[in-house]
Design a protein around this nucleic acid. Sequence first.
DNA 1: CGGCGGCTTGATTCGAGTCAAGAACCGTGG
DNA 2: CCACGGTTCTTGACTCGAATCAAGCCGCCG
Lengths: 255, 255
Amino acid sequence: MTALLKEVGGRFAPLRQKLMRLGVDRESDLNVIMSRFRLGRRLDRGEDILPAGSSPKHSTVLIEGIACLYARLSDGGRQIFAFQYPGDFCDLSRHMLKPAATEAAVAAVTPCSIGVIENAVLEQLLTQYPTLGMALWRSTCLEAGALQAKLLSGRQTALQRVAHLLCELFTQQVSAGIEDRVIPVSQIDLADATGLSVVHVNRTIKVLQVLGVLSKAGRSMKVVDLDRLAGLTAFEASYLRIPPPQPLFRWHVEI
Amino acid sequence: MTALLKEVGGRFAPLRQKLMRLGVDRESDLNVIMSRFRLGRRLDRGEDILPAGSSPKHSTVLIEGIACLYARLSDGGRQIFAFQYPGDFCDLSRHMLKPAATEAAVAAVTPCSIGVIENAVLEQLLTQYPTLGMALWRSTCLEAGALQAKLLSGRQTALQRVAHLLCELFTQQVSAGIEDRVIPVSQIDLADATGLSVVHVNRTIKVLQVLGVLSKAGRSMKVVDLDRLAGLTAFEASYLRIPPPQPLFRWHVEI
DNA sequence: CGGCGGCTTGATTCGAGTCAAGAACCGTGG
DNA sequence: CCACGGTTCTTGACTCGAATCAAGCCGCCG
């Protein structure tokens, strides 16, 4: 049984790390919380992890792979709101806003595996460990901040928008513990995330290659010069993470 | 003293209503929570309620007037992320993400008055009334949903974008208890919120007037035909509010 | 009643979308 | 191991929505 726990602990390591960064710092709490997750199914690239408008009886965490939160446009197009990396919750707001308020869905951008937790269990954990609630709330705040950043970058040129997105992906990837400089996302996905046409994304990427900022790596691209990439778009990574150094203020205030 | 409380209760009515809609349904809790707010200063149109990058020792609630959450573009322009109405918290994520993650600010769009609560007091309330934490978290989820909707509408034509924004403003206004069909927001603000140029917003509004959807009301505009306005842009108000009817699921799960 | 900020309008420019067609890549099955 | 089919990527020509530039106008406030 300890072996089983260890196994699961290993697979769920990204979640544990994420929760810690969000402020769940008591080891024992973490252990209890993590033990209530089970492994969900694996998904192929393109599959919906959470279809639009569904409200499952459990909440979902991404364990492996890259996913995206998206919504369909009236004309059949797709707007990607955010990319998710291992450790990210897929559907927190779906859980908080019972009747799935936004018609958003989550899809696998690369092959994924997920973890799930029963909603009832999650709610119980939330009442038992207020720190967990705060952590997840904070994670919602981060997501909102990322949406703001995306809105902001929407007012820049195509080059800056693409550069910004690549910076964001790269940063997320690094902080999810993936060292690879390759961004394994199709140009179609980049287009859906930036709101540009695929054609124009393509041209833009070529410019970035000519600038020596990106290079080709098979079908996808590799970040060669992150600093210059960031410089193109005044990218400030701060909105993506809570500063891990000083694990913030205490939630149980001494009165 | 009861007279004072009553007075304050009156002014803070929008906040009370908002908290109720978010799920704080125990009358006694509400009373305690509300009693910890005090009135802040009044602000003129255009003034910053919360300057970019500030982290005050208290949190702020809008009591009267309309405010906006915005950020400055690199070129000096302004992106408005959201409009806030009486009862809305101005800066929750600033409180949750200590080192003001996003460089966002809040400004008064019309003359405003605000309420404030010491951060220490708020934190104490949060530990004492878990329902409050859930309510505020939920409010953050709603904000995130609104940001998603804005991102979505950014991919439509100028007419649709403006129509969408007007629908949103109107809906928020109504649910804040303001009956007026007039939207007291300048075209400059509309431009900054839609990401269009002022010139183009102006032309677009004229089209909407010709269509008989809007009419002029002094300097600002009046919504004449909300249904048609909403029809232009597939506006779905659902993302703006938690359904008030069934005040959602219980947070203290019976185990 | 003067002035300043916001609204209106026209002329021109340009970034990005669309359409269309071909090339490279990848998985699959023979 | 190679041929095939479907994605995804590339490239070029053309179009168009919205930005920009430049004035003039209106209305509110001092």
